[in-house]
């Protein structure tokens, strides 16, 4: 009798629709995951493999060990590119963070027209590096740019020829990149500052701390995660920087301002040295991972502990 009742009230099992209902989430994730597996992991593996071959114009698949890596590190342009990355990267990151943080603190003082200022500081972020490069190339060109402006204002001896000076050209990249990105850093800091518990600040004020002390001793230490985030994001941008160099200096004068990304592009698409291109790409990946993995690891650990 019991079994009769069971059959009466329980809806008939439909294996197919049941299976679908149980697995629909996996089915929906599958295309995205599949694309990522193929286009990210598969491609990295392929590039990694090619970097161990003597591929030139077309990929070959015989394993040659570290041949391309040894060759890569013996090439002057690659070493220049890595040096540039170090100089450009450290200056860009340092200045963008200091400036962004400073502007965020300044904007956080109940200033008038905060909305307008914020918009002005941030709009470069919406623009392509190609446009940034084009604009700054125009401003920095010695013939008609700032140099001639200063000279026409009566400062005859003023010289500002960094763009065509192979010693200094890399710093023009820093100027333009800071212009483009520091507003973004400012936005991150401002958001975090707005999130600081105002009762802590009131308590410090009652304790007699001055404004600068409140910032230095109380607020900035709580922004440690933002410093880390900015450091990591800017590093990532620096390693990837390609378009700005193309548009602003074209890698020149000579190859004095090339970056690893430009080197990779040049080898892969212009000089038919795809094995070498792949090796340089893998070096870039390694550089990013050396920074990202400790960052992610510390983030995950903090989340677990907290």
């Amino acid at each position: 009798m019991m079994s009769l009742m069971t059959q009466k009230t329980i809806p008939a099992k439909q294996p197919l629709s049941d299976w679908f209902r149980r697995n629909v989430a996996k089915l929906v994730v599958a295309p995205t995951f599949g694309l990522i597996i193929f286009f990210v992991y598969g491609f990295i593996a392929w590039t990694g493999y090619v970097s161990f071959t003597k591929s030139k114009m077309l990929p070959t698949y015989s394993f040659e060990g570290f041949y391309q890596y040894i060759r890569l590190w013996k090439m002057t342009p690659w070493n220049v590119a890595m040096e540039n990355l170090l100089v450009f990267g450290s200056l860009f990151i340092l200045i963008a963070i200091v400036l962004g943080c400073l502007l965020a603190i300044a904007l956080d003082q109940k200033v008038r027209a905060e909305g307008v200022l914020r918009t002005v500081y941030l709009y470069p972020m919406a623009i392509s590096f190609i446009i940034t490069g084009t604009a700054w190339k125009w401003i920095l060109n010695p013939g008609l740019g700032i140099q001639s402006l200063m000279q026409s204002w009566g400062w005859e001896s003023f010289a500002f020829d960094w763009l065509i000076n192979s010693e200094m050209a890399v710093y023009t990249l820093v100027i333009a990149a800071v212009w483009q990105s520091s507003g973004f850093v400012m936005a991150l800091f401002l958001a975090a500052l707005r999130g600081v518990d105002s009762e802590i600040i009131k308590a410090a004020y009652l304790d007699g701390a001055s404004l600068s002390r409140i910032y230095l001793v109380i607020i900035l230490p709580t922004l440690r995660p933002v410093f880390l985030s900015c450091f990591f994001i800017l590093t990532h941008m620096a390693v990837k920087s390609f378009d700005l160099v193309v548009a602003l200096t074209g890698g020149g004068p000579g190859y004095s301002t090339i970056m690893p990304a430009n080197f990779m592009y040049e080898m892969t698409f212009r000089r038919n040295q795809i094995g070498l291109g792949a090796a340089s790409a893998m070096m870039m990946l390694a550089t990013v991972m050396a920074i990202v993995i400790p960052y992610l690891y510390s983030e995950l650990r903090e989340k677990k502990n907290g």
Binding site: I37, V40, Y41, T47, P59, P260, A261, Y265, T268, G277
Partner: peptide, 22 residues
Amino acid sequence: IFAMILFGCFIPFQVVLLPMAQ
């Protein structure tokens, strides 16, 4: 799966240019 997808945010795209072109 999320972590594996997230990894895609961090790669320099140079490592996929060549196979993508192919």
